[in-house]
Design a protein around this nucleic acid. Structure first.
Length: 279
DNA sequence: TATTCACACACTCGGCACGC
DNA sequence: GCGTGCCGAGTGTGTGAATA
């Protein structure tokens, strides 16, 4: 054993894993990587941010997680850390949750995927905010990995996966299930987008697509429209929102476009209510 | 006009005290 | 002993004024 590894071992701190620590590790398993402020909001809402961050650091010192810079610069200030699972964290999950550690991705995410993972968590937090404001109820957020594992038993031909599946209930309404897709601008029409949307349409669930910019929506709408016609469903089956707007104004504050260009605020349609159309 | 520097800001980190 | 909260120092980055 080298001096360096001895030093690292000596530095490692013992930690008794609490239920919410396990919960944090589960979230890292589901989302692959999560920022420190995101993890604090998601897993430690009852303690201060600073204490939550300290707990995350202890998890890291105990070897369950690793961290790197998010690289996100939103104005001034030091970029926050993002956390990911290590092999020890994966083994802890196997011990506490029965998930085979060999199937758990560990290590830092590729730079290419980092922003995608972080945006998915941000959208989830925006949904949680909406739930806290009682704009929706019974929110359940399942990442693609878990949901599609279950679904594949019934639809074995379906290979494309949504980034997440959301279950929610509007006030005085029945629960609904929605497929969520985060678009970071890398999809190609025939290679990625069309097989993905066709697979989603087979489930019958509505589709929410979060894109990086408004102009990108026009492209995605153009690609999607024929697929909706082919599946004989209406333009509201697949709707598009801009990430920055959702983060700034919330899920229900942002403008969402149906595939035909009309605007929706996501709230259930009332009888006799007309919606504005995009010129 | 380009460069330098001080400052602001947001976040990290470690120490300390307190309560359980 | 461990978790928590507070505090102050340190770090990395952007901003804007001063200077060559």
């Amino acid at each position: 054993m080298t001096d360096k590894t001895l030093k690292l071992k000596a530095k490692k701190k013992n930690l008794v894993l609490m239920q919410r620590d396990i919960w944090a590790l589960v979230q890292l398993y589901l989302h692959r990587t999560i920022g420190s402020s995101q993890l604090a909001r998601l897993c430690f809402p009852d303690i201060s941010y600073e204490t939550a961050r300290k707990r995350l650091r202890r998890l890291q010192q105990a070897g369950f997680t690793g961290s790197s810079s998010s690289g996100r610069m939103e104005g001034r200030g030091r970029p926050e850390l993002i956390y990911y699972l290590t092999a020890a964290g994966a083994k802890a999950l196997e011990h506490h949750q029965g998930i085979s550690w060999e199937t758990i991705p560990t290590g830092p995410p590729h730079t290419y995927h980092k922003e995608h993972f972080l945006r998915l968590v941000d959208v989830r937090l925006a949904l949680k905010d909406a739930e806290a404001k009682q704009l929706l109820f019974d929110l359940d957020f399942t990442t693609g990995r878990e949901f599609w594992k279950e679904l594949s038993l019934d639809l074995s031909e379906v290979q494309e996966q949504a980034d997440a599946t959301i279950t929610l209930r509007y006030p005085e309404a029945e629960p609904i299930k929605i497929l969520l897709e985060i678009d970071t601008g890398n999809f190609r029409q025939t290679r990625h987008w069309e097989p993905k949307i066709r697979a989603f349409l087979k489930t019958g669930f509505p589709i929410w697509v979060v894109t990086g910019s408004a102009p990108r929506i026009a492209t995605l709408r153009k690609w999607t429209q024929p697929l909706l016609e082919e599946a004989q469903v209406g333009p509201g089956k697949c709707i598009f929102g801009v990430y920055d707007e959702i983060i700034q104004y919330g899920i229900f504050g942002a403008g969402w476009q149906r595939t035909d260009g009309s605007i929706t605020d996501l709230k259930p349609r009332q009888h006799g209510q007309n919606r504005p159309q995009i010129p």
